[in-house]
């Protein structure tokens, strides 16, 4: 049930960093909202019981070794983002077991954790702190982070005046300045320009050499094909296919061509 930090065995390249067993996540659907104490007191408990839940994820089992890159594909609403959030520790599993060796598992997605009213500089420190880095660490890495994002001249500008590409660059740069055990990327690189994407994939390669596991969610199947070691196709919250990239993508594409029918067993 709990996300347990386990001790990492020594040998890089073979140690298991991420272990997901029979993961299930139940989330509240927005339709029945009984959210006031007044209604609760007036209508009683049975109406509160009417809050409806759906299985955002169920029966997911995946295991990832140090340095591995998992590409996650699937339709909108298939549970890809929820899956990343579970790995990041944001969403607690309702069922099953998730363990990640290592404390820091940043999730890079559009505008992640940024306060748009604050300047770029303030956000670097705040986002760094939210990743659990202490002030001195962030201060020491500040120039490196800003250089990588190519935003030297925009640090005193409020983030609300940034383009979405600038936000993505800064987010990725801060999240990857300290090699994390697990890096979760949710379509964040799609808005960067070609030059930045190139540098991102360079940095991802370097992180993987140091043992970072990368989970990449993307609708860009060619990107997944070229980068991923293994792939996971999520279909309506379940595993559509998992394993060798070519086979998984073929299964996903076959389903796309059938026009989104049931998955063959």
């Amino acid at each position: 049930m709990a996300l347990v930090a386990t001790a990492a065995p020594a040998k890089a390249g073979q140690r298991r960093v991420v272990q997901v067993e029979e993961l299930g996540v139940r989330l509240r659907s927005e339709t029945h909202r009984v959210r006031s104490l007044r209604e609760y007191l007036l209508l009683g408990r049975r109406h509160v019981g009417r809050v409806s839940w759906f299985e955002a994820l169920s029966g997911i089992t995946v295991s990832l070794q140090a340095g591995e890159l998992l590409g996650v594909v699937g339709d909108n609403g298939a549970g890809k983002t929820t899956f990343l959030r579970v790995l990041a520790g944001i969403v607690p599993p309702s069922e099953g077991r998730v363990s990640v060796a290592g404390a820091i598992a940043p999730l890079v997605e559009m505008g992640a954790g940024f306060d748009v009213e604050l300047t770029g500089r303030e956000n670097v420190f705040l986002y760094g702190a939210m990743l659990g880095l202490d002030r001195r660490r962030v201060a020491g890495l500040f120039d490196v982070m800003v250089d990588f994002a190519g935003l030297q001249d925009s640090m005193d500008t409020a983030v609300k005046n940034y383009s979405s590409g600038m936000v993505a660059r800064l987010g990725f740069s801060v999240a990857t300045a300290v090699p994390p055990a697990l890096l979760l990327v949710d379509e964040a690189l799609a808005v960067g320009d070609a030059n930045f994407r190139l540098r991102c994939s360079d940095r991802i390669d370097r992180l993987r050499e140091q043992g970072t596991v990368v989970v990449l969610v993307s609708h860009d199947l060619e990107l997944v094909r070229s980068q991923a070691d293994t792939a996971l196709w999520l279909h309506e919250g379940r595993v559509g296919a998992v394993g060798e990239v070519g086979a998984v993508l073929a299964a996903y594409q076959a389903q796309l061509e059938r026009g989104g029918g049931e998955v063959a067993a």
């Binding site: 604050l118 705040l126 702190a129 939210m130």
Partner: peptide, 24 residues
Amino acid sequence: MQRGTSLARLARFSDCLWLLAARA
């Protein structure tokens, strides 16, 4: 979600707490 005790987690994020307070 349980990465260390709740107190230890708060301690690890104390910089975050101060930054948010300073911001407010």
